[in-house]
């Protein structure tokens, strides 16, 4: 009980980080799982969301303003995702996709740095969530709790859409057998483009929500991309449940792990990833309906 008391806040931070990482990483995972596309521009898409927060939010923002910002981030994310889907559609080789998407990321990162400057920009949480909440006698930022809750809701919604709706069934069918789906008259490219767009929208939203926690600065896109890749690969490519588990693990490693083993802080994340991959190469919760990777 004493241990829990001492580390509760750290673990909550881990969950908050996990919540953000889930939102950002799930799109990357789905895009790879369904389209077999390695999108290395994902980090900069997320950073765009953070800078949207810089542009639209200030400490006085009310609920409406915050919701507007979230919608704007999601909308811009959809557009970015659709553009990326179109641009990568002609490139089927993983390595060349990496070259293309990383090239785009580097250009976009530079542009964002030009527009917003190279300093760390802070993003204020909305006024109605600016305070603290009491948990087991300690005070904890309300905003971070809200992020955890919101991410849970979105995760469940995503799962339900994928498993219970016709659109979700279409996505799963396209993953399982793309040619068959096209044979029944579905434009699989549109389906997959939709997945790309939604994934990017979640990333920008995640970036926006991460603003008050991580700030916004050039180079953050690389950090976020790296973390998202680790989450996705640990969890299992193409799997939502995998993204959840991966995010929770990475979140705890980066917060609780660092706090408990500060000397090993720099080694924990990649050490943990290496161990997981060597024991379970397909990830901890690989997608049940295949990763969509072409034979």
């Amino acid at each position: 009980m004493g241990w829990l008391d001492a580390n509760l806040l750290t673990m909550l931070n881990g969950l908050a980080l996990a919540a953000l990482l889930f939102l950002i990483a799930v799109g990357l995972s789905l895009v790879f799982g369904t389209m077999d596309v390695l999108n290395l521009a994902h980090g900069v898409v997320s950073l765009t969301g953070a800078y949207i927060g810089v542009a639209l939010l200030d400490p006085a923002t009310g609920t409406i303003g915050f919701i507007v910002a979230m919608l704007a981030a999601a909308a811009i994310g959809l557009v970015l995702g659709a553009v990326l889907a179109a641009v990568t559609s002609g490139v089927s080789d993983h390595l060349r996709q990496a070259l293309l998407t990383l090239g785009i990321a580097m250009i976009a990162g530079d542009v964002l740095g030009e527009v917003f400057g190279s300093d760390v920009r802070s993003v204020p949480p909305p006024a109605f969530l600016g305070g603290s909440v009491e948990i087991l006698g300690r005070s904890y930022p309300a905003y971070r709790l809200a992020v955890i809750v919101l991410s849970l809701i979105i995760g469940v919604a995503l799962f339900l859409v994928l498993e219970r709706t016709k659109a979700g069934a279409l996505v799963r069918a396209t993953v399982a057998d793309r040619t068959m789906v096209e044979a029944i008259g579905v434009r699989s490219r549109l389906v997959l483009g939709g997945v790309f767009a939604v994934g990017a929208a979640l990333a920008t939203l995640g970036g926006l929500l991460a603003g008050p926690v991580l700030g916004a600065q050039p180079g953050l896109d690389n950090t976020v991309l790296l973390l998202a890749l680790v989450v996705v690969v640990i969890g299992g490519l193409g799997s939502i449940r995998g993204a959840v588990l991966g995010a929770v693990l990475v979140g705890q490693v980066q917060t609780l792990g660092v706090s408990l083993l500060p000397d090993l802080a720099s080694f924990l994340l990649f050490g943990a990833m290496a161990v997981v991959l060597l024991l379970k190469p397909a990830g901890l919760l690989p997608a049940r309906y295949g990763t969509g990777a072409r034979a």
Binding site: V233, L237, A274, L278, P281
Partner: peptide, 26 residues
């Protein structure tokens, strides 16, 4: 150990190796 994996998993394992060596140097 690394060569037991392949494809994107191998890529990530090598990323980990590279980063771990980097951290050791740092």
């Amino acid at each position: 150990v690394a060569v037991r994996t392949a494809g994107i998993v191998f890529l990530m394992v090598t990323l980990a190796i590279g980063e771990l060596i980097h951290q050791v140097a740092d």
